[in-house]
């Protein structure tokens, strides 16, 4: 009898611990999300809204700009996320080697970029790739380019610069996670592999990656989510241009709400499209992660 009251009491404490945080999320996240959903069922300009059912969702499929922005974001996603995570993994496994000299300094320098704000890093990279920026000056000095290259006005190179900026800003951040994960792996596993004659790359693929699977899953979901919601970099580097070649979905939502004649209902429908994409991709990633 005494024991059950104790369990009850402990259980009550458990709920007391989690409820404040849960309430905050419900009130400040789920409640506005529900009102955004109700908004997505309405059409009209400014405050002259009327109920229209799923019309906004049907419109999505005819909206060339929306479809292009989805395509852009997917391009960022399939190129940037794997490259960045692989680079972070490689860096983490190099930094994890206790014999490496100057480990502390290398580690600090590699982590450094995540201390800058997104707006700052965007502005710095934009100036690098400007017409008389450092990149053109260097490449022309080396004889690679004959005349300055207009990076940010080329549909493909502009995407490249955005991908580079995100990679610069976030690789170090992901390296921290991998490094932490690696430090949990027993050194003796590597020792044994080395005695068996496994090469460094073999160790990387058959020990590091499988043992880091949970961390890789975590970082993949975080990065995917971040890329799908990409906003600051695109807005500050290319503002979506040339044309709409670099436009992201979040920026399109912003334009629909604030730059153009406001269509909040349709903008809300577009944001639900991101939500669905994030949810589907996370689900796939978790499933794939579990299987391996």
């Amino acid at each position: 009898m005494a024991k059950t009251t104790l369990t009850k009491k402990i259980n009550l404490y458990g709920w007391l611990f989690v409820i404040p945080a849960a309430l905050f999320i419900f009130i400040l996240n789920f409640y506005p999300m529900v009102s955004a959903f109700l908004l997505s069922l309405q059409t009209g300009r400014g405050n002259n809204l009327k109920f229209a059912g799923l019309k906004n969702y049907a419109r999505l499929f005819q909206d060339e700009m929306f479809l292009t922005s989805v395509g852009n974001v997917i391009t960022y996603l399939v190129i940037q996320v794997p490259v960045m995570l692989l680079l972070a993994l490689v860096l983490a496994s190099i930094l994890n080697n206790p014999k490496l000299k100057g480990r502390g300094i290398f580690r600090t320098l590699i982590f450094l970029p995540c201390a800058t704000s997104l707006v700052s890093s965007a502005m710095i990279f934009k100036s690098f790739f400007s017409i008389d920026g450092i990149v053109n000056t260097t490449l022309m000095g080396l004889g690679v380019l004959q005349s300055p290259m207009s990076w940010l006005t080329h549909p493909i190179w502009a995407k490249f610069v955005i991908i580079l900026t995100i990679t610069w800003r976030w690789t170090g951040y992901n390296t921290v996670f991998y490094l932490a994960g690696l430090q949990n792996i027993d050194r003796s596993v590597y020792e044994a592999a080395r005695i068996d004659g496994a090469s460094a790359s073999r160790q990387f693929f058959s020990i590091t990656i499988p043992l880091l699977k949970p961390v890789i899953l975590l970082t993949t979901i975080m990065s995917t989510n971040g890329t799908l919601q990409l906003f600051d970099e695109v807005r500050n580097i290319t503002n979506g241009g040339p044309g709409i070649a670099t436009l992201s979905i979040s920026q399109y939502i912003y334009n629909l709400s604030f730059m153009y004649n406001p269509q909040f209902g349709y903008a809300a429908a577009v944001s639900y499209a991101i939500l669905v994409m994030v949810a589907v991709l996370s689900f796939i990633q978790i499933k794939v992660g579990d299987k391996r």
Partner: peptide
């Protein structure tokens, strides 16, 4: 966007036709 397409070698008429379509889309509800 039309200007960017024309600069890449696209035809002016085609680029403006796309622009017309896109603006009409954004003007509709």
């Amino acid at each position: 966007r039309a200007l960017s397409e024309v600069m890449q070698g696209g035809s002016i008429d085609a680029a403006l036709a796309t622009a017309q379509k896109n603006v009409e889309f954004l003007m509709s509800e």
